[in-house]
Simulated assay, not measured.
Amino acid sequence: MTELWNWRIDQVRPVEVYPALAEALGRVVMPLAVADPARLPTYAVICDVWQAPGEFATVVDCYGVPDRLPEHASIAALARLLDRNCLLRDDTLDASRHLLVAPDGTIRAVHFDVRETDDGEVLSGQRLCTEADPRCRGWSQCHRSRWAPDSVLPALAAA
């Protein structure tokens, strides 16, 4: 079985992502636009990288990722290689809540204002998921996550 990963990166050109992603995953990374399913090596990962509006404007979709590759450790390796903060969705159904992965490998929950546009989802107004924010207290979806408000974890602990 294979997985689909969807990540966002802070201020990086898509052309820089492919080689760093290949190194982070230890796999051949094929751009979706040129991937020929009949000629793909069995260990290849197909990726689509593009620019979107808003914060964390570089979007990365990875298709066919093998189950045995740990997502949190992989995105932490990518953040380190690019020296950029990265985002992935958390485990709640809250569209505003993401996990911020720093180049040093730490992971923490954050929120964004999310707006849908013709060009895709626009993220703005980043803020920490913290008990100091009334929207994250009590019975909020934040407490249903394994990433509780104010938690900061290393990527290896999250894997």
Rank of each mutant, 00 (worst) to 15 (best):
M1V: 15
T2Q: 03
T2C: 09
E3G: 01
W5Q: 00
W5N: 08
N6P: 00
N6M: 00
I9H: 03
I9Q: 04
D10P: 01
Q11E: 12
V12D: 06
E16P: 07
E16K: 12
Y18N: 05
L21S: 12
E23Q: 15
L25Y: 05
G26Y: 13
V29C: 11
V29W: 04
P31K: 11
P31E: 15
P31T: 08
A33N: 08
A33E: 14
V34I: 14
A38E: 12
A38G: 04
A38W: 00
L40W: 03
P41G: 15
P41Y: 13
Y43F: 10
Y43L: 08
A44D: 05
I46K: 06
C47D: 11
D48C: 06
D48S: 11
W50L: 10
W50I: 06
Q51N: 08
Q51Y: 02
A52P: 00
E55D: 13
F56M: 09
F56K: 09
A57W: 04
V59Q: 15
V59E: 13
V59F: 04
V60G: 04
V60F: 10
D61C: 08
D61V: 09
D61A: 14
C62L: 15
C62Q: 15
Y63S: 02
V65E: 05
V65G: 04
P66R: 14
D67H: 05
R68C: 04
L69P: 07
L69F: 06
H72E: 11
A73I: 05
I75H: 12
I75P: 01
A77E: 12
A79T: 10
L82I: 11
L82H: 10
C86S: 13
L87P: 02
D90K: 10
L93T: 09
L93A: 15
A95N: 09
S96L: 03
S96Y: 03
R97H: 15
R97T: 07
H98S: 10
L100P: 01
V101S: 15
G105M: 03
G105T: 04
T106H: 14
H111R: 12
D113Q: 12
D113L: 07
T117C: 03
D118Q: 01
D118M: 01
G120M: 01
E121S: 14
V122A: 05
S124H: 02
G125D: 02
L128P: 00
L128D: 01
A132D: 13
P134E: 12
R135T: 09
C136D: 08
R137Y: 01
G138R: 02
W139S: 02
R144V: 04
S145H: 02
W147A: 05
P149E: 08
P154N: 14
L156Y: 07
L156P: 06
A157S: 13
A159H: 07
A159F: 04
A159L: 10
A159T: 07
